[in-house]
Computed example of a mutant assay.
Amino acid sequence: MVVDEPLVAVVRAGDPLVRESVDGAIPLAALRGRPLISLPRGTGLRAVLERACAEAGFAPRVDFEAAAPGVLVRLAARGLRVAVVPSGAESAEAAGSGVRGLRVVEPVLRGRVALAWRTAGPASPAARELLGRLRAGVREGAP
């Protein structure tokens, strides 16, 4: 299973980035010098962010890391920096939380998550439950 989503900058509704956005989008350059919160180094999504920033001529200023995108969104809701997360995490966590997800464009940043598992052989009840939830989540997010 492969999930490919755009990355978004999640900010509190009153953040200056919201006013600077055009149709809910900001250029990657708008993140230059801004304190960010992101997934840890070594994750694919963090590598996408770092590579895009390097190509744009700057290093992202990541002040805080968390391993779960939902945690990053909740921290952004409290005004702690700009969270860079997959768009699905923003929409799932942001409902009613006072945050805005701004698409990152120029360039568009996309993250891909791939999951693989054995189709034959024993699967624990926990593994079956996880796969069921993942499949349902992918179906809900499908256009």
Rank of each mutant, 00 (worst) to 15 (best):
G101M: 01
L39Q: 05
P6A: 09
R61A: 15
L131P: 13
R103D: 12
S38H: 06
G57W: 06
A76K: 04
V105L: 09
A127G: 14
R128K: 15
A123Y: 09
P86Q: 08
V105E: 14
G132V: 04
V84H: 07
G88V: 05
M1S: 13
G79F: 13
A83L: 03
E65H: 13
R128T: 11
F64Y: 14
V48E: 15
E129N: 01
V104W: 12
V84R: 02
R46I: 14
G98R: 07
L17N: 04
V104H: 14
P35W: 11
V11A: 04
A54K: 12
A114F: 04
V11L: 06
P69V: 05
E50Y: 06
G111C: 09
L130H: 09
L7Q: 08
L39T: 12
G79D: 11
G111A: 00
A52V: 10
R51M: 13
I26M: 02
A127K: 13
A83E: 06
R32M: 12
L31E: 00
R41D: 11
S97D: 08
D23Q: 14
R32E: 15
W117F: 09
L36M: 10
R110P: 02
V108I: 10
D23F: 14
S124G: 03
V11I: 03
A59Y: 12
A94D: 07
S91E: 08
